[in-house]
C-alpha cells in the first residue's frame, strides 16, 4: 500500500506544481517578450539614456494610433512620421480629445513593429500605462521622448510605434465602489 501512497503524493504535488506553472507562465512570458521584443513590447520603465552615442545612421519612425472599442475619443499622432538619427533623443506628441459629454478615464498601450526591433526603441518619457483623466470636450497633448539604441542592426527598415487608447472609466467606477 505504501507504494500507492507514495505515487499518489508525488502525482498530487505534480498537479499542484503544474497549476502553479500556468500562473508562472505570466511573468515568464512578459520577461521573454521584453528580452526578445516579442509582440512589440517596449520598455515599461523610463529609459535613462547614458551610454548611447549618436551614430550616423538614420531610421524612419512612423506613428499610428488606435481607439479601442469605439470609445468616444479623438486620438492621433501630431506627426505621422519622423526621420531620426540613431542615438539622439527626440520629442513628439499625440493629441487626444474627449468627444463625449462626460469625464473619462483613459490609458494607452504601446506596440512596436517589427517586433525584433522593439528592444531598440527606447522610450525616455511616455504616457503609456499612466491613467489620464480627461474632461468632456477637453484636448490634451500626450508627449513622448524616445531614442533609438545604437545596437539597432544595420539592415533594419522603418519602425512603427502604435498606441491604443482605452476608455477604462467603467473599471475605475467599479473599483471606486469598493
Amino acid at each position: 500500500m505504501t507504494g500507492i501512497k507514495s505515487t499518489i503524493t508525488k502525482l498530487s504535488l505534480a498537479v499542484v506544481a503544474m497549476y502553479g506553472f500556468s500562473y508562472a507562465l505570466v511573468p515568464i512570458y512578459d520577461t521573454f517578450c521584453e528580452i526578445t521584443g516579442l509582440n512589440g513590447k517596449t520598455n515599461e520603465i523610463a529609459y535613462v539614456a547614458n551610454d548611447i552615442k549618436e551614430d550616423n545612421r538614420f531610421v524612419t519612425v512612423k506613428f499610428i494610433s488606435n481607439v479601442a472599442n469605439s470609445a468616444p475619443l479623438y486620438f492621433e499622432p501630431s506627426v505621422s512620421e519622423m526621420t531620426v538619427q540613431v542615438g539622439k533623443p527626440y520629442n513628439t506628441h499625440y493629441v487626444m480629445k474627449n468627444n463625449s459629454s462626460k469625464q473619462l478615464h483613459t490609458t494607452a498601450s504601446p506596440s512596436v513593429t517589427p517586433g525584433k526591433h522593439a528592444e531598440y526603441f527606447k522610450k525616455i518619457e511616455c504616457f503609456c500605462f499612466n491613467q489620464q483623466t480627461i474632461n468632456a470636450g477637453e484636448v490634451k497633448d500626450l508627449g513622448i521622448q524616445f531614442i533609438i539604441d545604437n545596437e539597432l542592426p544595420n539592415d533594419s527598415g522603418d519602425i512603427v510605434l502604435s498606441y491604443t487608447m482605452f476608455d477604462i472609466s467603467n473599471n475605475i467606477k467599479e473599483t471606486n465602489k469598493l
Binding site: 498537479v15 503544474m18 497549476y19 502553479g20 506553472f21 500556468s22 500562473y23 507562465l25 505570466v26
Partner: peptide, 14 residues
C-alpha cells in the same frame, strides 16, 4: 494528463 490539465485550469481561472 497530470502535466497538462492543471495548466488548462490555470488558464480558465485567469
Amino acid at each position: 494528463l497530470i502535466a497538462s490539465m492543471p495548466v488548462l485550469a490555470g488558464a480558465i481561472t485567469m
